[in-house]
Amino acid sequence: MSAAPPRSPLVLSFAAETPRAVVLLLHGGREHGTSTPPPWNLPGLRMRPFAHAIGRAYGTRGVAVGRVRYRCRGWNGEREDAARDARRALDELAPRIGDAPVVLVGHSMGARAALSAAGHPSVRAVVGLAPWCPTGEPVAQLRDRGVVLLHGDRDGTTDPAQSAEYVARATAAGATAGLVPMSGSGHAMLRNAPAWHALTTATVGGLLELGPLPDEVARSLDARPAA
């Protein structure tokens, strides 16, 4: 009996027949862990409101929304499992969408994976939510990409100061990068959750040129604020 083929890392939940753009969501995970995430895991569920908000806002305008499915729960050091899955998903998606741009939206470990995979030719921009940005993380792949990081000022899991340092290095590497503080919010994005959903959705739309960037995002990118 032949072995079953590996399952696809790409899941499209709101799919336009011929998309003008794609938004892929990447949920959080653990520093270490090689077990397969269960279908209904909490980090994945946390991203569902973002997927629904983006789909409602832009689905009728030709934007497909999907997610990256991980093989492992953890990042796992030099294996960088989540980033490898993100790249596999982008490779699988590319022949289906042609020149349509992709925006990656990731939380915590998912943001780290999105930033790492952003050098893929399909990627236009990354929105990182409470991102995990270790000191010394590579940034050269972000050249000519948009990078917007949203980080709660009460996050006790990932460090907003590391996000600020990452944005500075990404900008020096040629990215258009900015950091927006989320006042009163922690890592799980539960406090002020509607603000996270709304700002992320509007930011995605601005990065895809489907509307103006939110004022706070435009200011963080040193761009002209929306009128």
Rank of each mutant, 00 (worst) to 15 (best):
R46D: 15
L90E: 02
P95S: 03
G66F: 13
A168Y: 12
A83C: 09
R112P: 02
D81S: 12
P38M: 13
R88S: 12
R87A: 02
A89N: 10
A193E: 09
R56P: 01
V63L: 08
A140I: 01
H120K: 06
V103I: 15
R219P: 05
Y58R: 08
A218M: 01
A170C: 08
L104H: 00
G146K: 07
P43S: 05
T34R: 15
R219I: 13
S122N: 05
H151G: 01
G136M: 06
R7G: 06
E80R: 15
R67W: 15
G44I: 10
D81W: 08
F14I: 03
T201F: 08
E165A: 14
A94T: 10
S185K: 04
P134E: 10
A94F: 00
T34F: 15
R84L: 15
A168M: 11
L179M: 14
L150T: 05
A125W: 02
P19C: 05
P160Y: 07
G59L: 04
A218H: 03
I54E: 14
H197R: 14
L12D: 04
A114S: 09
V217T: 05
G136F: 09
A188S: 13
V102F: 11
H32K: 11
T60H: 13
A4G: 11
G44D: 15
D99Y: 09
V103M: 00
A202Y: 00
A3D: 13
E209N: 12
L221W: 13
R20I: 06
S35V: 04
A16D: 09
T171P: 00
G62F: 07
M182Y: 09
A227G: 14
A82H: 05
R224Y: 06
A168V: 09
E17P: 11
V23W: 01
A173Y: 11
P212A: 12
P138D: 11
V217L: 03
G98P: 10
A223H: 06
A172E: 15
P95Q: 09
H120T: 07
R67T: 15
E78D: 15
A21V: 11
R96V: 08
G28L: 06
P194S: 10
T18G: 04
D222Q: 15
V180W: 08
P214T: 10
R73D: 07
V123S: 11
G28A: 14
W40M: 00
P9I: 15
L207R: 07
S163G: 12
P131W: 12
V105L: 09
D153R: 05
L210V: 06
G66P: 07
R61W: 04
A140C: 00
A223I: 00
T176F: 04
L142I: 14
A53M: 08
Q162C: 01
T158M: 06
G178A: 08
A82F: 07
I54P: 00
A113Y: 03
A168R: 11
A111I: 02
I54L: 14
A193H: 07
S13R: 08
G156L: 13
F14G: 02
R20T: 14
A170V: 08
I97P: 04
A140N: 01
H27Q: 11
A177L: 01
A193C: 07
P160C: 04
A64K: 03
A117I: 03
Q141D: 04
G55H: 09
A226T: 11
A114Q: 03
V68D: 00
A89Y: 02
V103G: 02
A227N: 13
I97C: 03
